[in-house]
């Protein structure tokens, strides 16, 4: 039941909320605006808001100089690859936990989550060493595996909560109807869980895309994704605001769009179902 309020009250709420919203969004807005300025306009005193000569020059320069497409491709391959791989491993596991629970299911779920809580820095060197030994340092496949393992607990967990909402009777009906386990998962469970699988996919692509510990420490040139691309602007290029902004905009735009689509599922995925 939405409570009715006076128009004045609503206007006040609206004004306050928009003001706060714009304030929080401002750094992103400012970055996007600056990316269309010339370098001189970008550091103009006083700052220019909308009235400047809009230019796309920075995007061209950034692309030319740092080969944005290569970093982008690495990001897509790493985020997408690790998530898809994770989902393939997680679907059977989540099926087991949701539909054939045993008294250990809860412990296994919690244990899986607890692996997510291990501070990465504590195992940085061993992973580094393993990567060198296996010759997968600075490769996409190496990062795909590490990020898959990082996010696997979240993927299993999210799928588990979505699967739990599917009534077990439907799967039993499929079993009675003669479906094998494979057919049951392929023809009945997966199509029914598509929305849940999609939002799991989305959230984990975002998390993998923004992951900035392993991607910075395990890549150099070949497999570096956008997180590293931006970190390379740390200095001295960072002083070229317009180019920094163009690079930043290119790095965050794809995921910002995905994120807006997935905002509804975000809470559930990030709190492991503790807040609904």
């Amino acid at each position: 039941m939405a409570r009715s309020v006076t128009p004045q009250r609503k206007a006040f709420n609206t004004a306050a909320a928009w003001a706060v919203g714009l304030l929080i969004f401002f750094p992103i807005l400012w970055t996007i605006l600056t990316s269309f300025k010339t370098e001189a306009q970008a550091i103009n005193d006083p700052p220019l808001f909308f009235f400047f000569d809009w230019t796309l020059e920075n995007y061209a320069v950034v692309q030319e100089r740092s080969d944005y497409m290569r970093f982008l491709w690495n990001s897509i391959a790493i985020a997408g690859g690790s998530t898809l791989l994770g989902i393939l491993v997680a679907i059977p596991a989540a099926w087991s936990m949701a539909f054939v629970p045993s008294n250990r299911t809860k412990d296994i779920l919690l244990w899986m989550l607890s692996t997510k809580m291990l501070p990465a820095v504590g195992v940085l060197y061993p992973i580094y060493l393993i990567f060198i030994r296996l010759g997968i340092l600075d490769t996409r496949s190496g990062l795909i595996v590490v990020l898959m393992l990082c996010n696997l607990p979240i993927i299993v967990w999210m799928l588990y909560t979505y699967f739990k909402e599917i009534p077990g009777e439907i799967l039993e009906a499929a079993r009675m109807d003669g479906a094998t386990l494979k057919e049951e998962i392929l023809y009945v469970l997966t199509p029914m869980a598509i929305p849940g699988i999609a939002s799991t996919l989305l959230l984990n692509v975002i998390l993998a895309w923004n992951e900035a510990f392993w991607t910075l420490n395990l890549t150099a040139a070949k497999a570096a994704p956008l997180t590293a691309f931006i970190a390379s602007y740390s200095s001295p290029e960072g002083l070229f605001y317009a180019k920094l902004s163009a690079a930043s905009t290119m790095a965050i735009a794809p995921i910002l769009i995905l994120g807006w689509f997935s905002q509804k599922q975000l809470v559930r995925g990030l709190t492991f179902g503790a807040v609904k």
Binding site: N210, L216, G259, L266
Partner: peptide
Amino acid sequence: IAPFFVMPTV
């Protein structure tokens, strides 16, 4: 919500 989706390095 937007800032949450901005990668930390950015």
